[in-house]
Structures are given as structure tokens and as C-alpha cells.
């Protein structure tokens, strides 16, 4: 492993070392042949049966079950293949906010780096997209040794700025990617909710998997301000002078509804969603995320038709 610095936190990596990052999407059947040549070292694992529906590909029928039970079932497999992951890290101006030791960008960078490192260790392909409203940097997914170092180098000394983009970014990035990928989205997602929903649905529609890591600052979550405060926008010239304590309840309500909408959409799209806070430790959150993904995968693979 190349020597890594910057946002590759050794302690964090050590804590995540025993975990693996798996793809979660269920694929039907076994994709062999056409894609096999493209995939090195992939394997599929039988997960479950489902009843035959008219129109299903007969090649997926489980003849053994037919013989045994005289009923038609198709097999479903979990595609155990090398993951092609893309770290999509928001580098817009809003990510520069930090009320404590870390900014949201730094938190997100740590999280993305950790997951990227994990994937790389699993010999999965990892790429990087840095964006604001435009793609500012793109490293195609690669399992090569230098990939992770390239990612580290890209993240080093980065100064986030600009407005936040989402749907357009995903569309553009996905277009450049050859196959379904695991998108690790790291952002505060301070975009209109409909844009967010559109982006998520785009990924879902195109068969991608996604882990949504929403990074927020502790102050954004708790809004602890009391005295007269002039809030100045980080991505535009908007500002507002107010008595924060009189807005707090309403603000938290608005924020809460936004976060809920994000969470709901991610759940609807079967994407993992985690809220990362600059006020909390990253390791437990990522550990929980990875363990949950691993459990879900194992639980899904042991199911058999009755």
C-alpha cells in the first residue's frame, strides 16, 4: 500500500479494517458471458428463488425445483463481483462551514477517503468526483495501486467553493461510467429537494447503488446561536440579520423536514443514508453502516423458497 496522508486517517482506517464494503444490489440470474470478460474475479452467489412470471427469461429457471416441486421458480443471485465505486465529494462553498475543529468538507473527505481505502483494499475499483455545480475533478474508477494515491493527492489542499450541484453532476458522471457503480455520495445536499430526488431516482433507475453520506455541521443541526447574528451565505451574497433564538424552532423544523425528505427518498430508493455530524465521531457511524450492509447481504443470500 502506498503511504497515504491527508484525509486518510490511520486510526479510522484501523477501526474499519475488519469491515468490508459490499455492493448491495440484487441482480437477477447470473451475468456471465457478456460481462464476464470484463470482470475479473467476479463471482455470483445464489440468494433466493422467486416464482416464475410470464416473460421471465427461461434460462433462469431452476429445473431442480421444478422437478422436485413441480412448480416454476427462477433463481436470483447476488452479484459478487468487484465493485466499481465512485466517491462523489461535494466541494461547494457550503461544505466549507465548520463551527468546530472540522469543516463539513473535511468530515466528508475523511469519510470518503476511508470508504475509498476500504474498497481499494478489497481490490475494488474506486474513482473520485469532486464537484460543486460542475465537475471539478474526475478520477475514473481503478483498482490499481496508484488509484488511492491519486485520490489522496486530489483531496490534498483542496479549497471548496462555488454552488452545490447534484442531479446534473450525477447524470454527467454516470454517463462516463461503463457499468453500474456504487456511488458514495458525500455532501450536505443543500440543493432543492426535487433536485435531490431526481438525482437519486436517476441512480436508482440506472441500476446503481449508492451510499448517501450527508455531512452537516453540529451548529447546523442544533442552531445554538442566541445573540443578534448576521448570517452570510457561503455560496452566494445572501445574508440575514436576525435574533437566532427566535428563529431556532422554525429553522430546526425546516431543516428536520428536509433531512427527513432526504432520508425517505434514500430509503425509497433502497440507498443507505447516514447523517454525519462534525460534532460526532465518524468511526461508529461508518462501522454501523458497513456492518449493516454486510448483515443485509448475508441475510438475503440464505433465503430459500418454501
Amino acid at each position: 500500500m502506498p503511504r497515504l496522508e491527508g484525509f486518510f486517517d490511520p486510526e479510522l482506517l484501523a477501526r474499519l479494517s475488519r469491515l468490508e464494503l459490499t455492493a448491495r444490489r440484487m441482480v437477477d440470474g447470473f451475468l456471465a458471458g457478456k460481462n464476464r470478460s470484463n470482470r475479473h474475479g467476479f463471482s455470483v452467489e445464489f440468494v433466493e428463488h422467486r416464482e416464475y412470471s410470464p416473460g421471465d427469461d427461461l434460462r433462469h429457471l431452476d429445473w431442480k425445483v421444478l422437478g422436485r416441486m413441480d412448480r416454476l421458480y427462477v433463481k436470483r443471485y447476488e452479484e459478487e463481483t468487484n465493485i466499481t465505486a465512485v466517491l462523489v465529494l461535494d466541494t461547494s462553498g457550503s461544505m466549507t462551514y465548520g463551527s468546530g475543529a472540522l469543516t463539513k468538507f473535511e468530515l466528508g473527505a475523511y469519510a470518503a477517503s476511508a470508504l475509498g481505502y476500504l474498497l481499494h483494499r478489497q481490490r475494488d475499483a474506486v474513482g473520485l468526483v469532486l464537484h460543486d455545480s460542475e465537475v471539478r475533478a474526475f478520477l475514473p474508477p481503478s483498482a490499481k495501486q496508484v488509484a488511492i494515491a491519486s485520490i489522496a493527492a486530489k483531496l490534498q489542499g483542496l479549497k471548496p467553493s462555488g454552488k452545490t450541484g447534484f442531479e446534473d453532476i450525477l447524470t454527467r458522471v454516470a454517463h462516463d461510467l461503463p457499468r453500474r457503480c456504487l456511488f458514495i455520495l458525500v455532501s450536505d445536499f443543500f440543493v432543492p429537494i426535487d433536485k435531490f430526488v431526481a438525482g437519486i431516482k436517476f441512480l436508482e433507475h440506472h441500476g446503481h447503488d449508492a451510499i448517501v453520506l450527508q455531512t452537516l455541521d453540529e451548529a447546523e443541526l442544533s442552531f445554538p446561536f442566541r445573540s443578534n447574528t448576521l448570517f452570510r451565505g457561503l455560496e452566494d451574497s445572501r445574508e440575514m440579520l436576525t435574533e437566532p433564538h427566535r428563529l431556532r424552532t422554525r429553522y430546526l423544523d425546516v431543516l428536520g423536514r428536509f433531512l427527513e425528505a432526504v432520508r425517505k427518498q434514500c430509503a425509497a430508493s433502497a440507498f443507505d443514508h447516514e447523517l454525519l455530524s462534525t460534532g460526532k465521531s465518524l468511526a461508529p457511524v461508518l462501522s454501523t453502516l458497513l456492518a449493516a450492509r454486510s448483515r443485509r447481504r448475508k441475510a438475503g443470500s440464505r433465503k430459500e423458497p418454501a
Binding site: E220, F225, L230, F231, G233, R238
Partner: peptide
């Protein structure tokens, strides 16, 4: 106070 703010 002046606070740069992301969630405007």
C-alpha cells in the same frame, strides 16, 4: 456577530 452560513 457575523456567521458565515451554509444553510441559508
Amino acid at each position: 456577530e457575523i456567521v458565515p452560513w451554509a444553510a441559508m
